[in-house]
Amino acid sequence: MDPKNKVIVVTGAAGGIGEALARRFAREGAKLVVVVDRDGERAAAVAAAIGGETVTLDVTDGQAMIDMVADIESRHGGIDLFCSNAGVGEPDTDEQNAASSPDDVWTRAWEVNVMAHVYAARAVIPGMRARGNGYFLNTVSAAGLLSQIGGAAYATTKHAAVGFAESLAITQGDQGIKVSILCPQAVDTAMLRKGDASSQAENIDGVLTPDQVADSVIRGLAAEVFLILPHPIVMTYMQRKAADYDRWIQGMRRLRARLGGARGD
Rank of each mutant, 00 (worst) to 15 (best):
A109H: 15
E28F: 08
M252V: 03
A143L: 03
A99R: 12
R75G: 05
I233Y: 05
I79R: 12
T54L: 10
I50H: 10
S100F: 02
A161N: 10
A120M: 12
Y135C: 08
Q239M: 11
G52D: 13
A242R: 12
F164M: 11
G134W: 08
T107Q: 13
A99D: 13
E19H: 04
T157E: 09
A44P: 00
E202R: 03
G163D: 13
G260A: 07
N85S: 04
R247F: 04
R219T: 13
V213D: 00
N5G: 12
A169K: 12
N203A: 12
P3V: 08
G264N: 06
V162H: 13
Q250A: 15
G51P: 10
M1F: 10
Y135E: 12
V36S: 10
V114I: 13
E19R: 15
N97P: 10
G77E: 10
D244N: 15
Q200A: 14
G51T: 08
V179G: 07
E95K: 06
A26I: 04
I204M: 13
L208F: 09
V187N: 01
D188N: 10
T107D: 15
A222Q: 11
H159T: 09
A223N: 06
V69K: 09
G12M: 05
V9T: 07
A14H: 01
P232T: 07
A43I: 04
R193C: 05
T189H: 00
Q239K: 14
T236M: 12
G251I: 10
Q148W: 09
I149Q: 00
T209M: 00
H231K: 05
L146V: 09
K31R: 15
D188T: 00
I79W: 10
R122L: 13
V225M: 03
A142M: 03
P3I: 06
G52P: 11
V7T: 15
L21E: 07
Q212W: 02
M252T: 01
A22H: 03
D80T: 09
V34D: 11
L145T: 05
Y237Q: 14
D67N: 14
Q172T: 05
D188Q: 08
D37Q: 08
K4I: 04
A243I: 04
D103V: 09
W110V: 08
D215L: 02
D211P: 00
L137H: 08
R23L: 07
L192N: 05
N133R: 14
R193T: 03
R247L: 11
A152P: 05
V33L: 06
D205Q: 12
V10G: 10
A223P: 00
A116M: 10
G261W: 02
L137S: 09
G89H: 06
D92G: 04
K6G: 01
E111A: 15
G16H: 00
D61S: 11
V10R: 06
Q212K: 12
N203E: 14
T156Q: 06
V46W: 08
R42L: 10
D37F: 02
V162E: 03
H117A: 15
G15P: 00
M191S: 11
R108W: 01
I204N: 01
R38G: 04
S100P: 06
E41V: 13
A223D: 14
G150I: 03
H76E: 14
G144A: 06
V217N: 04
A123P: 13
